[in-house]
Structures are given as C-alpha cells and as structure tokens.
C-alpha cells in the first residue's frame, strides 16, 4: 500500500493539544497543495480559466525566482564590495 491509512496524513496528538495537531495537519496539507487541489476540483474549471491560471502561475514563479535571487544577493555576507553601486 502506498498510502496506508492512519499512517499517511496523520498527526499524533501531543499532551491532549488537539488544536495544535489540527494546525500542523492543516499546514502540511496546505503546503503540499492538497487543499488547493480539493478546492479547485470541486467545480469544473473551464479551459479559459485553466489557461489563465497556468499563465498567472508561470508569471508568478518567474517573479518569485527573480525576487528570491535579489533578496539572497542583498543578504549575502562577506562581499568584496559591501555596497554595490554606491561607489
């Protein structure tokens, strides 16, 4: 079995703290995109909606990648030139 029940998507409750366990479970489901897929497949997505969504996601991924690179550049330590562009 690939996803045995009560092993997959399961959180053990610690110290009777149910809410924390729920939050962890929800966070993991949200991070893995399971909730997103569930919400999206409740109703049929028309082809134009699909196209628009895919295009938007592509643009967003490109933007995020570039922004991450910029942030990493700014956060970089031990640069030879500490303030690039400010000479």
């Amino acid at each position: 079995m690939r996803h045995p029940s009560f092993i997959a998507r399961t959180i053990l409750v610690q110290n009777n703290d149910v809410e924390a366990a729920c939050r962890i479970l929800n966070r993991i489901l949200g991070r893995e995109g399971i909730l997103e897929q569930f919400r999206r497949t409740r109703f049929y997505e028309k082809p134009y909606q699909f196209r628009r969504r895919i295009n938007f996601e592509k643009c967003k991924a490109i933007y995020n990648e570039d922004m991450d690179r910029r942030i990493q550049f700014i956060l970089k330590k031990n640069r030879k030139e500490p303030f690039p562009g400010c000479t």
């Binding site: 029940s5 009560f6 399961t10 729920c22 479970l25 897929q37 497949t41 109703f43």
Partner: peptide, 19 residues
C-alpha cells in the same frame, strides 16, 4: 490519540459539476 485527514483528492478526477 491521532487526527487523520482522508479528504478525497484526485489529480486526474472525472469532470466535476459545473461551477
């Protein structure tokens, strides 16, 4: 003791109802 999620999610589902 534990909380399990068994929401049925498919990545190639049959066509859902109209929006």
């Amino acid at each position: 003791v534990s909380i399990t999620d068994s929401t049925r999610v498919s990545w190639n589902p049959p066509r859902p109802r109209k929006a």
